[in-house]
Structure formats: C-alpha cells, structure tokens
Design a protein around this nucleic acid. Structure first.
Lengths: 239, 239
DNA sequence: TCGCCAAAGATTGTCGACAAAATTTGTTAG
DNA sequence: CTAACAAATTTTGTCGACAATCTTTGGCGA
C-alpha cells in the first residue's frame, strides 16, 4: 500500500512545483509580504522557482479561483484588491460560517483540541509581544482555521480557508492602522467559551471579534497597496 | 466605451471555447445528464467543441476547483462522486448559508424580486406536471440561486452556486428514488414567507426543505452512477 | 479454464517555439 | 518643455510535438 498523501497544501515542501508556487504566494499574502495590486509576472515566477512557465500558469489560475489574485487577460496576474463592497461581503460570509463552525466545534472539541487552541493563542501573544507581525498574522489565521478543523466539516473549512485569506488581504489594504485589529487578545476568551461549552457566549464572542475587525477598517485611506516606485524610493520619515 | 461583459458564466453563447465547455458540463451535471463517475476524456471534449486540448484542460481544472469533477493524475477527469460524509457536509454548509441568505433577502426583496421567485415556482410546477426532470432540476436550482441574488452578497452567492451543483450531484447518486425529493411544491410556501417578511417562518421552511431533501437520500443504494457496459446493454425491465 | 505477464495502444503531462498583445522606450513636431 | 506618435522590447496566449503513464489486448504457462 502506498502512503496517503495529505490533500491540503502545506507551506513549502511541495510535491510538484505548482504547489510550491501556490504555497509560497499564499504564505506571502497571509503574512502581508505581498501587498494588494502587486504584479506577478509569469517569467519572474518561473525563474524564481526554476520551473516551466506552464506550472506558473496553473498555480496562478488556481490562486485566481480562490480570489487571492486577479487575472487580467493579456495583462497578467495581480494580487487581488478587494473593494469596500467586497470586503463587507467577505466579513458577512465569515460571520455566517464561523458561527456555524463554533456551534459544531462545541459539540466535538476534545481536551487536546482545546489545548491546541490555547497553544495557538499563547504563540500569537508571544509574536505580538515581540512585534512579529507576520507570525502574528499567521497564528491568528491558524487559530480560526483550527476552529474549523475541530468543527469537522471540510466543506466549510475550505470556504473559511478562502475567506480568512481574503480577510488578510482586506486588513492589509484598509486596516491595521491605529493599532486596532488584533491589538488585544480576543482569542483567549473564545477558547474559554469553547472549553466551557457555552454556545451563546462563544457565538457572541466570535461575532464581536469579527465585527471589531471590520469596524477597524478605513476605506477612505487605502494604504498598503502595491507601492509605486516613487513610494518605494522616497521613504517618508517616521514620526 | 466598450460594453460590460457579464462576469457570470451563462449557459451557452460563450466568449471563449473554455467557457463553452465549462457551461456545457455544468448544465449537463445540473440536469442529471452526466452521471457521477463519468469519464471526461480530453480528446473527446476537444473533438466535441472543436478546440485545442489546452482549452479542455483549463475548463477541467476550473470544474475541479468547484468540486464538480475530480482530476486523477495521469488518469483523467471524472464527474465527482460525493461520499456520504461529503454529502452530509454539503447539506450542512447549505443550511448555514441559505439561512443567512434568507435573512438578507427578507431585508432587500422588492416586489419584482418576489414576482420573479413566484414565476420560478410556477415554471417548476409546470415542468413537474409534464415530468420534465431536467427542467425541474434547473428551475429548482434557479429558485435557490435567485434567493442568493436577492440577498445581494456575491461571496455567499458563489458559495451557493457550488453547493447547489454538488447537491444536484448528490441527489443523482443517492436520491430521487421513491418519488421523494422535490415531489411536492415546497418552494411556494417559501415565497409566501418571504413576501410576508416573516423571518422565523422563512428560515424554518428553508431548514425543513433542505432537511427533507437530505432525509430522502439513501446511501445504501447508490444507483445512478456512471453505468457500466453491462448495465447499459442489459436493460432491466420496468416494473 | 484461470491467472499472470508482456506488448500494443491510447491518454495524460510537459516542453519549446511561435503568434498576439501590451508596455516601454525613443523620437519628433508643436 | 510637453504631447503624441512609432519602433522596440517585454509579456501573455496558443499550438503542435514528444515523453511518461495508464489501460487494454494478446499470449503463455500452470
């Protein structure tokens, strides 16, 4: 018997070059290293990953299907730039799905699941303490994804995979200013409610958490998009 | 100014061959013309649509991303065969999403929206009266999709597009026997509740409707999959 | 007669080359 | 000095051919 191959794409260590490309781009977007609007040229990527351009092409179409990038005919691939309207819809969809995931998770969470959630909140707090933004983003996303794993519905889990990524893009575009967003530890109380099997409290906390995230967005000041040359070459002085 | 091109793929009349292929396969699956497990050969499709094999390839990867077909490496593309577990998850996801869509639709439905819903139920009843299964399936799906259009959230609408298709596949595999499923007009009362802006009733009706569909599944008797040669050549007599 | 192995055929996957389109660069006129 | 036009370059899209893999067919021996 041959070993089972995990269906989900894990960061790095990919079986085929196509997966390495998608994983790298996904990770870069998830950690705010690739700003919205960045052009992803085919040749640049095929050079980087030392593979044929057809692999790059497949990876890009796959990412486009997840709304992580946008394909413009005869123009190329760009990191997606969600509109304010789209952002609203993404948050609404997230609330819907995470509410259900929370209810499911309450019924199924085992002690080790809760311990894993707790561990993620601790690691996230550590990352925040040392101002490691990429790790913080990654762990925050992992927290929400872990909830979907516990819930045990792979369809909803896959939807949430896409939605959390799009949320990260949105935060990069419209949020993160004013130290709002994930400043405090909002995940800790969520684990508490999950451990207490307090469904009403858990759902309320998640709703609040997502509402808080969304309320922190500022659509009038869309910074953090792909920088032009001028912005990159003429650095504005820090306050 | 050039005209805007509708982003959603409509049946037939496609801009590029790739869209024609995806639309045709989607329509065939949505009307139970393509049973689960059917092999979709690349050359067969490129002959049918008189296009290059690369177009077929793109169409197939797109369909695989929507879980309508399954791509097996070095083996080819097959119409997806959802497992009982996957079926349960799809229905759970549908309930979650349609509940929210119902609540949103109540807030936004205009008179002409309700008229359109009513019109779809009438057409569906007519199709059922003349035993036009494909039209019935198509119109039933259109009913649910129209609810998502009224709700005005394109993210959730796209999720539902995928879920309704997968549901149709599931019904073809495990359902439709014993004249259950869409035998009665369950859509009519839904429109009534929507028109009355009765949120509790609307949500309850949709929950019931989906639960009824799911309850009609029979996982022990997975008929209607891709027929083997023997099944196709030796017809069993009708009762 | 049944099961196993090998060859032939068909299908999928990969690659490089060319065509089409867009972007950039350079030039010239106003 | 600016704007507009044209050439050159870069980038994307398409195609056909070949390699790798799987499936089927035919043959052999137990």
């Amino acid at each position: 018997m041959s070993e089972n191959i995990p269906a989900d794409q894990s960061i790095d260590a990919a079986r085929v070059p196509e997966d390495a490309i998608t994983a790298s781009i996904l990770a870069a977007v998830a950690e705010h290293r690739l700003p919205a609007g960045t052009k992803l040229g085919e040749q640049a990527l095929s050079d980087l990953f030392a593979c044929h351009r057809s692999n790059v092409r497949r990876a890009l179409t796959s990412l486009a299907a997840q709304h992580v990038i946008e394909l413009q005919p005869n123009r190329g691939a760009f990191v997606a730039t969600p509109s304010p309207e789209e952002s609203r819809e993404v948050f609404e969809a997230r609330r819907t799905i995470e509410r259900t995931l929370a209810r499911l998770a309450i019924k199924r969470a085992r002690p080790e699941d809760i311990a894993e959630m707790r561990r993620l909140t601790v690691q996230e707090a550590e990352a925040r303490a040392r101002s490691d933004k990429p790790a913080e983003l990654r762990l925050s996303r992992a927290f929400h994804m872990q909830l979907s794993v516990i819930a045990g519905n792979s369809v909803l889990r896959q939807f949430l995979t896409e939605l959390t990524l799009r949320t990260t893009l949105i935060l990069g575009l419209y949020g993160d200013r004013g130290s709002s967003s994930c400043a405090k530890d909002e995940h800790g109380p969520i684990v508490d409610a999950l451990e207490a099997r307090d469904e009403a409290r858990l759902v309320a906390l998640i709703d609040e958490h997502l509402a808080h995230l969304e309320a922190g967005l500022d659509f009038d000041c869309p910074a953090n998009r792909a920088m032009t040359l001028a912005e990159q070459l003429i650095p504005q002085r820090p306050l």
